[in-house]
Write a protein that binds this DNA or RNA. Structure first.
Lengths: 120, 120
DNA sequence: CTTGACTCTGACACGGATGTCAGACCCTAG
DNA sequence: CTAGGGTCTGACATCCGTGTCAGAGTCAAG
């Protein structure tokens, strides 16, 4: 599919799809005309990129992660980043943040449970 | 404590402590001189802010979350003037953020789990 | 009082992710 | 062939978190 369709189906601006390519996150095939041709699977990839970006990872880190996700998808990509240490660190960082948020939410739940009594 | 000490004890640049204040994340008392005076508890608050920021939340979102975390510290803060509807909305926001982060972390976990197998 | 460390505000700069536009090329329907 | 929409590259602009600096005020030790 062309970039316009991918943009429509993912809700991600074409500008960003080109940007992600430049950052090494996407490698669509090119027609002789220069047009980008994307696979169906690129839809998932783009959504993954968006998710990881919104989780605070930068494009460089995501570029290290994505090839391994491809492997999981079944494709036998020969290359995989060397250091999972960095990934573990990112994971731990996320875990902390999740715990942080969960504690906040639990607290909020407690407040909500009590609130009707103390407010009304 | 003054801003310099808070900066030293949290490892966060003074510039950022002032910035967080401007974004409504910190509200230190002010001496007549204009000097900021922070509480011990602000250390935890700052570390929380850092963690949430590094998890991809922006200062605006964090500003909505922080007041409810204060309650946990034991203070019966008369702030939090929101109705329970607002609280529920915040809770839902938190839930959504948590799900987002958890999906990202699970993704990382999957990558980490696969990586060693394909490397050795 | 003087000195030096600390703080204040305000401004400019920067990098990363994103928005937008211009000018040129490609492609398909008529 | 033509027209109109899709695509290309490249440049400039914006937002947010952060770095850094200048100039002025504060404060405590000597």
């Amino acid at each position: 599919m062309l970039i316009g369709e991918l943009s429509r189906r993912t809700g991600v601006h074409e500008r960003l799809l080109r940007y992600y390519e430049k950052q090494g996150l996407l490698w669509p095939e090119r027609a002789p005309s220069g047009y980008r041709h994307y696979q169906e699977s690129d839809i998932d990839t783009v959504l993954r990129i968006r998710r990881l970006l919104s989780a605070g990872l930068n494009t460089e880190t995501i570029a290290q992660v994505l090839p391994c996700i491809r492997i999981k998808a079944g494709n036998l990509v020969p290359v995989c980043p060397e250091t999972t240490d960095d990934l573990r660190r990112q994971r731990d960082r996320l875990t902390h943040a999740i715990e942080e948020l969960r504690a906040s939410r639990d607290l909020l739940d407690a407040v909500i449970a009590v609130a009707p009594l103390t407010l009304s």
